[in-house]
């Protein structure tokens, strides 16, 4: 099993990572090396085993629906790359 350069490009797009050609090639090599190791667990008999998604499972953790102080707007915006009029500013997404 190996991953093609086209697949690497696809994964980078899914992951929102803008990579140049040399980087894509480097990741292709490293991903293929790791995928080789992933084969180590393919032979294990896991038939009927429940997946364990969490270290110590808790179920149905509820919180009281109470109002409590949150971040004030200016603090929430303080680390923004661009903000204006109390808003985070991003490029236009929906054309008119």
């Amino acid at each position: 099993m190996s991953i093609s350069l086209e697949e690497v490009r696809h994964v980078a797009r899914l992951a929102r990572l803008d990579l140049d050609e040399p980087e894509l090639l480097a990741f292709q090599g490293e991903l293929n090396a790791l995928l080789g190791h992933f084969q180590d667990i393919q032979g294990i008999d896991v038939e009927g085993l429940d997946p364990k998604p969490h270290a110590v499972g808790l179920h149905n953790v509820w919180a009281e629906d109470l109002a409590r102080p949150g971040l004030i707007r200016d603090e929430a915006l303080r680390n923004a790359a661009v903000s204006r009029a109390g808003l985070f500013i991003v490029p236009t997404i929906i054309e008119e």
């Binding site: 667990i41 393919q42 294990i44 896991v46 085993l49 429940d50 997946p51 364990k52 998604p53």
Partner: peptide, 8 residues
């Protein structure tokens, strides 16, 4: 599968 092995 990794989660199943984690359980194991």
């Amino acid at each position: 599968r990794a989660q199943q092995v984690r359980g194991l």
